[in-house]
Structure formats: C-alpha cells, structure tokens
Computed example of a mutant assay.
Amino acid sequence: MLQLRSIFDVNAVQRFAPGDVVFRSGAQVKNVFLVCDGRTALLRLLPSGQQAMLQRAATGQIIAEASVYAHHYHCDCVAQEPTDLASMPRASFLNALRSDTELADAWAAYLAHGIQQARMRAEIRNLKTVAERLDAWTAEYGALPDKGQWQGLADEISVSREALYRELARRRSA
C-alpha cells in the first residue's frame, strides 16, 4: 500500500466533515481518492429505501477502487468522521499503473485484498442470526467500534439498529 500512497500528493488534501458528500452516484469519475486520515463509507440506495454499505475506507485506503475502471460512480461516498482525502486525476492514476509494473502489482494485490474482504462481508451477511453475524464480524475485524458508530456496524452486517442494540444489551447482561 505504501507504493500506491507514494503517487498521491498527501500534502495537498481536502478536509471533509462527518456527513459531507465526497461524490454522488451517477457523477463522472474524474479522480481517485486516498484516505489520508479518517473514514468514509460507500452507500448505495436500495429500491426498498434502505442503504447498503459497500465499503468503509479508512486511513491508507483508496475509495471506490472499482470506479477507476468506470465512467460514473455507482454509489455515494460520505465522510463518517473528520476525513482528509488526497486525490489525483483518474487518467494520471491509470498512466502510473501502465508505466510502472511494481505499482501495477501493488494495485493488483490491493484489489485482491478488497475482493477477500467483500467475500467475508457477504458471508457475514448470510448468517442467520444477529448473534452469529456479530460473532463473525468481531472474529474478523476485532473489537466493536465506538458506540457512536454502531449504526454503521448494523448497516455493515445488514441488521436493524434495534436488533443490534438488543444483541449488545443481551451480551452485556450475560
């Protein structure tokens, strides 16, 4: 990841407050974004009106990596906490990959890791109970996030906030 980070100007960052929109679904992909500090979420509105969280990108991660190969974004990107983002033109990013095989290999490894994480999230969402989903999530990612971020966790494991809160209360009382 350090190799990918090296092509971004991390001294020229844009600051986003919690809730700020980085880009919207349907917007043309012009830039590639690196999270220098903070966290963002990729959200897609479902026909039911609910939102699906497709990615949580934290410090050191690239946002919406699949969009590097798309003309338009397929989701919204929202800052979840104070977040600093470095960006570079999509065309420059692609040119850097074409001209540097080590960088291209680092990018391929980064994408492969993202696929592994997506598969894990899908497996967690396929578990039947909130308890099973929460156990699998903590086994994979560690400790629970801070209380103010539990809504994001509920979205990530595809349960209602209320169901997650009930399960957490049950665990505290057990």
Rank of each mutant, 00 (worst) to 15 (best):
R98G: 10
S99Y: 00
T101V: 13
S6R: 03
A17T: 06
A131C: 04
Q55S: 08
L45R: 14
I157P: 11
G49V: 05
T138D: 02
W137C: 02
S25H: 09
F23K: 07
L2W: 02
A163P: 02
A154L: 04
F23T: 03
Q3E: 14
Q14L: 11
R121G: 00
H74F: 03
A109Y: 01
S67K: 07
A169H: 12
V32T: 11
H74N: 00
V21C: 07
Q116A: 09
V21F: 03
A169Q: 11
S67D: 09
E65V: 15
Y69L: 12
N95V: 09
K147Y: 08
K147L: 07
A86M: 13
L43P: 01
D84W: 06
A52D: 13
P89M: 15
M88Y: 01
S87A: 08
L164S: 05
L34V: 10
A91N: 02
L54P: 10
L164N: 05
D76E: 07
H74D: 12
L4F: 03
A139H: 14
E167W: 03
R24N: 10
Q117N: 12
R15C: 04
E81R: 13
V159A: 06
T138F: 01
E140A: 13
Q14P: 00
V32Y: 00
T59E: 11
L2E: 15
R39Q: 15
V35M: 04
L46M: 11
A163E: 10
V22H: 06
N31I: 02
L144F: 04
I124H: 10
T83Y: 07
V10T: 15
A41Y: 08
A66W: 12
A122H: 14
V130L: 05
F33G: 08
A136D: 02
Q149T: 07
D76R: 00
N95M: 14
A96Y: 05
Q3T: 14
E167K: 13
N31A: 08
V13P: 03
E162T: 15
Q149P: 00
Q50N: 12
D9Q: 10
E162V: 13
G19R: 01
A163G: 05
L94Q: 13
E167R: 11
H113L: 14
D76H: 12
D9G: 09
L94E: 07
K128M: 14
H74M: 00
R56I: 15
D146R: 13
V32F: 02
V35I: 15
W137Q: 04
V10D: 05
A64H: 03
V29K: 11
I7D: 03
S87L: 14
F8D: 02
R90I: 01
D20A: 04
D84V: 01
W150P: 01
I7H: 04
Q61E: 14
I63F: 05
A154E: 10
R166W: 07
I63T: 12
H72S: 09
S160F: 11
A12I: 03
A64M: 00
E156A: 12
Q151F: 01
R171K: 12
I157L: 08
T138R: 10
M53V: 15
R119N: 14
D105G: 02
L103K: 01
L85F: 04
L134D: 11
E162L: 10
E65N: 12
D20E: 05
C75E: 07
A136C: 03
M88S: 04
V32G: 01
G152V: 04
Y165K: 09
R161A: 12
Y165M: 08
M88I: 15
